[in-house]
Design a protein around this nucleic acid. Structure first.
Lengths: 254, 254
DNA sequence: CGCGAGCTTGATGCCGATCAATGCATGTGG
DNA sequence: CCACATGCATTGATCGGCATCAAGCTCGCG
């Protein structure tokens, strides 16, 4: 049962993840319109600064936390890109989400004070550490923070339901189209181009998230390219016909 | 876009759902060990009584709320059985869960003050109405309630991740086995037999939840019966070999 | 340069979807 | 009480989408 019992590099004896204690401030963070403090007043924002005291660097390939780890803090992605994945006893595993700047990691841990999934950095990343006990206390004081936090949890539930719909009823092309549209929409909200992106994850990780094998993901990319919907160069994707992708997701009934 | 614009019975002019205002009390409810108030002190429990002022009857087949409805309250199932389902614009729909006594409905609505799924009673049911604004206020006052509520939301997220794993990586037999084990486990926690149950939902609803067609669900039931794992008589299920089901879910790698 | 991780592409096979017919239980009206 | 309709479940035959197996290919890196 002890699945992840050793540190990452027993050879060197280095700590699992490089850990640095920078001072950061939500009130001056350029993600504050996307992150936990959305909609908080100036005053509340300054209280948040005390709460989010440290950040932590997570190099590409390292885990921020693993299933079974004690839960202490939530993490807000500051820079970089993560995946979360759950795994069953028999070794099957499933990517449950990809997180980018401003998104929260660790909500799963609240349920029983242990994390129930792994969070892995897909590129060199930084997160803000939010001690959960402090957050709970502050939320009792500031209605807006409490409300915002509840909304974030609920939003995750709604997102998950959307993924269930995708996994339960869509075909490969529709899944990949939906995935790409979701990704570009979130990138666009962060000021990136809506039509050009670099995938941070492998075909296998995309496949795991979408309930497909990596070969199917690859083939579907190729198909989209043949149909003039995309231009695909390895992980460089350019969307040539967004409307076409939308049609795939929605008008699939026809 | 106005999908659900009319009441259920325009003919009779009757209100959508029979609505009755009973007084109920969490402090004397025999579900209090399963429901929102888990772990609350006697004092807190009495405060809850004020919060959960009314219950509401939902006859079989009727909806408790629908996607798009304004969100005001959470609902705790008191008696009966519900399904929740989301649907995409093009008419596809997906059952996202089945809820029994003591379980909470409506968490999806917190995210943007509108429900994003339908909740349908699969048998004549009663729910406790929990006005969300009141719950938020009370949670600010009572740490235990706040913590318990956060845990419930987190637990829903963890459950959803489990469903994603199921939908993304399991085969039909494994899905159905996992489903049955989950159901019986929850029934057992409510004092029912762990080996004998009556399904409240159709094959089609099970299929939607599990990402399968109803014929596949039916065939898989028959297969389990042939293999001596179950005895299946329409919706009456008796589990003859629980270990065998477990093996299907976990040891499927072999 | 050569190795390896990740990606592409082809050939084949299987699981579950689809189409179709029948069976079974419940309810309704004659 | 029977005839019939209706909704749900079972079972069979066939089909198709995706998985699987198996080569090559590309690109970054030691």
């Amino acid at each position: 049962m002890p699945a992840h019992d050793t540190a990452h590099c027993p050879m060197t004896g280095m700590s699992r993840v490089k850990q640095e204690a920078f001072k950061v401030a939500c009130s001056s963070c350029n993600l504050r319109e996307l992150c936990l403090p959305v909609g908080l007043s100036r005053d509340d924002l300054e209280k948040m600064d005390a709460l989010v005291a440290t950040r932590r660097a997570v190099p590409r390939g390292e885990t921020l936390f693993r299933s079974g780890d004690a839960f202490q803090s939530l993490y807000a992605v500051r820079t970089g890109f993560f995946k979360t994945c759950v795994s069953s006893e028999d070794g099957r595993d499933q990517v449950t989400g990809f997180q980018m700047a401003g998104e929260l990691l660790g909500l799963d841990g609240i349920s029983n004070d242990r994390h129930s999934c792994d969070a892995v950095a897909l590129e060199d990343s930084q997160v803000c550490v939010i001690p959960f006990a402090d957050l709970e206390e502050l939320a009792r004081e500031f209605t807006d923070l409490q409300r915002q936090f509840n909304k974030i949890m609920s939003r995750e539930i709604v997102r998950d339901h959307g993924v269930m719909l995708l996994l339960g009823s869509m075909r490969a092309e529709e899944r990949l189209a939906a995935f790409l549209l979701n990704l570009t929409q979130r990138l666009q909200a962060r000021g990136f181009s809506p039509s050009s992106l670099i995938l941070r994850m492998t075909r296998e990780e995309i496949g795991s998230y979408l309930g497909l094998k990596l070969e199917t993901v690859s083939r579907t990319f190729s198909k989209f390219q043949d149909e003039g919907l995309l231009e695909v160069k390895q992980r460089q994707i350019r969307i040539l016909n967004q409307g076409g992708l939308h049609q795939l997701v929605n008008g699939a009934a026809c």
